[in-house]
Write a protein that binds this DNA or RNA. Structure first.
Lengths: 189, 189
DNA sequence: GTCTATAAATAGATAGAC
DNA sequence: GTCTATCTATTTATAGAC
C-alpha cells in the first residue's frame, strides 16, 4: 500500500471506469483487466475498493474547499463568482472523471467518510451562499432568493464536465465569458 | 405481470429506494422488504429488476418529450422557455424520485432501452436547442452560444428535485419567477 | 509485488408447494 | 399470487506459492 505512483494509476484508471459504469457496477476484476493485472494485485496498493472511491472524491473535495477559502473577500461578489466559475471550468477540463465520480457516487462512501464528504460539501455551499448574500446585500445583485441563485449556479458548474466532453469545440475563455454573462446579465438582449 | 396496480406500487417503491441507494446497490430483497413481501413475489408482477428501471425512466422521458412537442411554437422563445421551466418544476415537485433515477441510473438500462433513452434525450435537447436558437436569431436573446445556454439551463432544470427536497420553504410561483429571472435577465441589479 | 486458488457473502432469478 | 428453498453466477477480499 506504499508506492504512491502505482496507487495514483489505480485511482486514475478507476475514476475512468467508475465514470463509465458507476462505482457499484465496476468490479475489481474490471479494474484489474483495464490495467493488465489480476484483481488480487490491486490489494497490494490499496486496502479496499471503497478506499479507491475515497481517494477520488475526498481529494477533489478538498481542492474545491481550498480554492474557495483562499478567495480574496474584498472585491465585488461578481468578481468572486467569476473566479469560482473559472475554477470549476478548469477542473472540469483537467479532471472530468473525478468530478463525475464525486457527483454520482458519493452515496457509496462508507459512514465516516460519507459524513466527512457531506460536511465538506456543506462548507463549500455555505461559503458560496455567503458571497451571493453579500452581493444581494450590497445591492450588486437583484433581490432574488440567494438559495435559488446558489442552486442554479452550482447545478451548472457541477455538470460542466458532461457538456465539455460532448462539445469540446468552444474555447475555454469563451466558455468562461458566456457562463458569466448568463448568470450576471441573463440571456435577454 | 398483469395487475397494473401492484406493478405501479412496485415501481413507485423502487424509485424511492433506487434514489436513496442507486440501482445496482438496491437488491430485489431490499425492495421486497420495503414492501413487506418476499423477493420471489415481485417476479409475479415484473419480469426482471431491469424492467423496473425501464418503467421508471422511459415513462418519465416520454412525458418530457410529449410536453415539449406540444408547445405552441408561435410565441417568443422566452415564453416557451418559461413554460418549459414551469413543467420541470412541476415534475420535480410531483415525482422527485423518478427524476433522480432518470438522472443517475439511465446508464444501467440494457442495450436496446439504453439506445431508446438516448434518442429520446437527444430529441428533447434538440427541441430545446431549436427554441434557444430561434431566440438568438430573432435577436430576442443575446448572442451567446446556444449550446452554452442549453447546457446551463438544462443543468439547473434537471437538478431541481435535489434542491426542492432540501428547502421546501419557497413557494412554487416564486421559484418559477426567480429561475426565469436568473436566466432571462441575470442576477446583476 | 504478482500470481493462482479459494473463501464467504450476496446477487438475480426460478421451481414448486400451498 | 405468495411463500420456502435453491440454483447459478458474481462479488470483495485473503492465503500462500513463486
Amino acid at each position: 500500500m506504499k508506492p504512491k505512483i502505482e496507487q495514483d494509476l489505480i485511482v486514475k484508471t478507476a475514476a475512468k471506469l467508475i465514470r463509465e459504469r458507476g462505482f457499484v457496477a465496476m468490479s475489481m476484476r474490471d479494474l484489474a483487466d483495464e490495467m493488465g493485472i489480476k484483481a488480487a494485485s490491486i490489494y497490494n496498493h490499496v486496502s479496499s475498493k471503497n478506499q479507491i472511491l475515497e481517494l477520488i472524491i475526498l481529494q477533489l473535495a478538498e481542492e474545491f474547499i481550498h480554492h474557495i477559502n483562499q478567495l480574496n473577500q474584498a472585491p465585488q461578489a461578481s468578481k468572486q463568482i467569476k473566479e469560482i466559475i473559472q475554477h470549476h471550468i478548469d477542473l472540469a477540463i483537467e479532471r472530468p472523471n473525478s468530478i463525475a465520480v464525486l457527483n454520482n457516487d458519493w452515496i457509496h462512501l462508507e459512514a465516516e467518510k460519507l459524513k466527512l464528504f457531506k460536511s465538506m460539501r456543506k462548507q463549500y455551499e455555505d461559503q458560496l451562499r455567503l458571497i451571493i448574500e453579500q452581493g444581494v446585500l450590497e445591492k450588486e445583485f437583484k433581490n432574488i432568493h440567494s438559495e435559488i441563485i446558489l442552486f442554479s449556479l452550482l447545478s451548472t458548474l457541477r455538470n460542466l464536465h458532461l457538456w465539455i466532453k460532448k462539445r469540446g469545440g468552444i474555447e475555454k475563455s469563451v466558455l468562461i465569458e458566456d457562463v458569466n454573462q448568463i448568470f450576471l446579465t441573463g440571456i435577454l438582449a
